[in-house]
Design a binder for these strands. Sequence first.
DNA 1: AACTACGCCAACCGCAACCGA
DNA 2: TTCGGTTGCGGTTGGCGTAGT
Length: 288
Amino acid sequence: MKNPSSGASKITPCCSKVGIKRGPWTPEEDEILAKYIKREGEGRWRTLPKRAGLLRCGKSCRLRWMNYLRPSVKRGHIAPDEEDLILRLHRLLGNRWSLIAGRIPGRTDNEIKNYWNTHLSKKLISQGIDPRTHRPLNPNPNSPEVGHGRELISKPKANRYSTPVVFEETGGNSTANGIQSDTNQLKGGHDLVVNDCMMGIQSGYRRGNEEDYIENCNELDTFSSFLDSLINDSMFLNQQQQQPNFHPLVCSSSAQTINHGNTIWEAELRSSIDTSSEEQSAQNNHPA
DNA sequence: AACTACGCCAACCGCAACCGA
DNA sequence: TTCGGTTGCGGTTGGCGTAGT
């Protein structure tokens, strides 16, 4: 299955397995890698194994460092509040594990992805919720709510950096057609704002040129503030208190189907846009 | 005790974006 | 502008541990 020489039109030196060790890392390898990165710093992954004296490919070294050896990595049990945050961020961002991980200190994208696949998705399914769309499974097809409303859904792999988030609103009824890739389907100002912000986040965080995209995309702060509001929102807690049948795993989705066009999180976004625009003048930089 | 099924998670792979020559 | 190399992301796999029979 994992034969690098099959099916690949080109094989980068990094992926060549000649003399390259694979499989689990030993404590000795961990120590060599950690010491080297402490001494020389991160980066130049491709040449790092040779410089450090490791028989590993650069990708493997990077992954090991990022997911396991980094001092900031928090390992172990995921707390309920972290789980709640993952759920809400996933509903917002889809399978953008690195973005989700970026909002949860000490957690890696791999860890969150694994936790989602092994715990949260099953949890949602057991509660009759589609973990991909955060909508009820086997909904009543006659219901006007089915397939309507707004949602954020992960993109197919081919376009995962192009238009990561699309909100579509048509007339009085919001529609969500699942995976969207065509920016022509964007409608409404908020849709564009969020989409542009995501584009900025994507391009910026991938390469760390934060100054560039912050200059060119002020909406980053908007979106970041929006995420912060999700993290800290009291609305979520209020819902739990006010709705006897409220379940945290369907929090905003239940609210949005009830409210149709005026969704809870649209309000959150509006609020975020309003407040963040005020804050932007006083806040030049925002920790990503 | 032996075997099987299942869950978890570290690690790998392919792809796409980014960057510099 | 093009192209090759590098980096980072998300999907997937394989191995290990454990529960169940």
